[in-house]
Amino acid sequence: MNNHDHRSAQVKTPSIYPTKTKAQITIIFFIVIGFYLYSMVKTQQEMVGGFNNAISNMWNVMLKFFPPNLEVIGAVWPPMATTIQMAIIATTIATILTIPLALLSAQNITTSKPLYYTTRTILNILRTIPDLVLAVIFVGLFGIGVLPGILALIVFSLGILAKLISETIEAVDMNPLEAMRASGANSIQMIAYGLVPQVLPQFTSFVLYVLELNIRASVVLGLVGAGGIGLILDQQLGFYNYPNAMTIILVIFVVVLTIEYISNKIREALI
């Protein structure tokens, strides 16, 4: 933890290292450890039986999940498909909505300071709210179903996507846009001809990344009634039907890994 020690060794000033800094590092180190121990105690307060009991208990419970009941795979697939469909729809809509938002929150395109800061702030706030909390609220508004799930995913991915893409836009070479302006092009033409070709590969890559995130997120949305496979996982766990639950978890695992693999391959080809 006391990294300054080692760094100083690297620059060959071992003995004249200021004792004050050393003391600071030590204090920070102990505060971190102390806070950790306190957190451990606090979080274990309501636990019955203590830590060692938990470990052996955990093993026993894990065993209950095995072997997974593979016969239910057929029944697991339709909700899994719904989950993927939700993620695809949400990503598509978020991608469309991102375009104006990303332009508005890119400093080199949006020259109006108030407009820029307003969009930035809204996006920053959006990003602080976890996806599932959004889902809870949308379920409250629309009732149980896939629609609140899709809406939660849209809002959640919008914050991330708009930020990533606005940063790409800010890193763009502005020279061609100046040349187009000098030849009488209007703003929309400048964006279509100068900006879009420069950001398109990154844009596609980020959209795929957000699709991955959305698939992961949509898997658990069902836990709060927002549609998809999470719902039946919750049911099976509620019935203590652990082998069935394990099958669901395995299907999720395989789907997430597969989509990650495909999306990685596409992204490698793009950049």
């Binding site: 070479d173 020279n175 100046e178 040349a179 590969p201």
Partner: peptide, 10 residues
């Protein structure tokens, strides 16, 4: 322009 100002990817 001095730096040609072309869209490099197009």
């Amino acid at each position: 322009f001095q730096n040609y100002n072309l869209v490099k990817r197009s």
